[in-house]
Design a protein around this nucleic acid. Sequence first.
RNA 1: GUGCCCGUAGCUCAGUUGGAUAGAGCGGCGGCCUUCUAAGCCGUUGGUCGCAGGUUCGAGUCCUGCCGGGCGCGCCA
Length: 574
Amino acid sequence: MADPLLTLTRAFEAAIAAAFGAEHAATDPMIRRSAHADYQANAAMALGKKLGRPPRVVAEAIKAALRLDDVCSKVEVAGPGFLNLVLRDDYVARELAATAADPRLGVPAARDPETVVIDYSSPNVAKEMHVGHLRSTILGDAIARVLSALGHTVVRQNHVGDWGTPFGMLIEHLIDQEQAGEGDLSASDLTSFYKAARAKFDADPAFAERSRRRVVLLQGGDEPTLGKWKSLVAASMRYFGSVYGRLGVTLTDADVAGESLYNAALPGVASDLEQLGLATVSEGALCVFPPGFTGREDDPLPLIVRKQDGGYGYAATDLAAVRHRVAAIGARRLVYVVGAPQAQHLAMVFAVAKLSGWLAPPARAEHVAFGSVLGPDRKMFKTRGGETVRLVDLVDEADDRAAKVLAEKNPDLDEETRARVAHAVGVGAVKYADLSNDRIKDYVFDWDRMLAFEGNTAPYLMYAHARIRSIFRKTDAKPGDAIAVTTKEERALALTICRFGAAVEEVGDTLCPHKLCAYLYDLASAFTSFYEACPVLKADDDATRASRLSICDLVARVLARGLDLLGIDAPDRM
RNA sequence: GUGCCCGUAGCUCAGUUGGAUAGAGCGGCGGCCUUCUAAGCCGUUGGUCGCAGGUUCGAGUCCUGCCGGGCGCGCCA
């Protein structure tokens, strides 16, 4: 109830029903923020058309039926039939106080909570985590946090690449290393490990042959081979865990559901598709041709479930995962945080899952597609040497750069605090840069821009938060219950605060975290304007001071909570 | 060839699901620190929303066709 939008919407629905009959009660009043007032209602135009009456007459009728005396100070018809709404100051203050008293800060609890599976991050065992994993990991984690905050049951699924033909050579290489007494897997560099195995595979035919035999042993369930495989997986999981820890990502070992998890289910997927009459053998491979998908020459496009050689492709694994998530986990919403290039593949998987009945309403799947991270040259982000950028190196550089800026801007921080704050600022900047752009688009990775303290950046939001915390370090006064809204800056700030819940809810619907970023930037901007114009500790009187302290405290809580939902820390000082 | 995505100020990006005069930041120009963090604030400059049609009271937003760029399109994941 802390969002005036909800109160207004309800009042309009009642007014429309009263003026035009109950059959129009469900008409969306279309209340939006307005440059001409606090809000505007746009329903009269559409309603006028439906009723065959002039929109302005309809608007007047709605206005006459509205009961908003204690909410609005002004309601007027404008233009072709807009209803401009100005809220009463005391009403705004009441709503603000209600938000301040609400532990959820206005974030609604889902009326119909669901179990949501979120598939994200998905690095490969025995390989380094690199920028290619950044967006899935960051976006997925933010989405998980937001849906969880909205009251849904979130099940994280880290679909790690822990199976496939490369494991033959990796295991053989591991054996070689152990025999040479170099078998310290935990300390070894994953990149060089993988590259060394790859190099040997390409250069040494005997090694390549051993590797191929090893794949067969692995797939056959040979115990010693499985043991080696498990130690490779375990080493990688420890490594991933350390990267997630440094990034502040919530994924744990308990969330791992790698490709190998579905191995046993793959023959069943294939045979069930055959029995359903969906799959046919084409060029030796078992394929499903879902309607509506064509390739070159208008040929039907196959989803290859089983390859010519009898092995199962990733399509089979993806289908088994859908089945598992719906049937075993009980998911109603399947979210895939996967790059945009895989749109067609996923669309086909979803189509087949629906045809087979494994994905049936109310369960549904959504592809949260995202673009690439680009370098300054607008091509895929690489190091100067043309190598892929490791996530650990990215975090190191973020720490360094943030520490440098911090040392310059605030030399008063002690060493330990500075390191802690630098990490929060550095990693926060990287994450925020990723989250604040519309995910479907590519974006250019630019250290200077993301670490800038002006504009829509993490440091700007954090700075606003830290300034508020600084105020409270300078006083013993506690925020009280009474809030008054008088100046135009207080008013603008108050109305912005009230939108928090709607902003979070919108991210839950659209799975577009940049909408929450845009909101938080609005909030921080509104706060800094207020901060410049309205003295808090030096307010004219005690009542104003207490009220402004309450507003400050509330802004700090919303900023911190909003950033937390994005997976970003908000330090108390910086 | 075909499918999907993108095209908004000099640059980087928003645009509340079709609403009034398209908004921010950077850059440029001009102001504001004896006062809570100036890492900031205020003002100003700057647009044929890729192009052309269409749908309607109303289109940056929806539909069609072009132009330009990116990414997919049978056994890698």
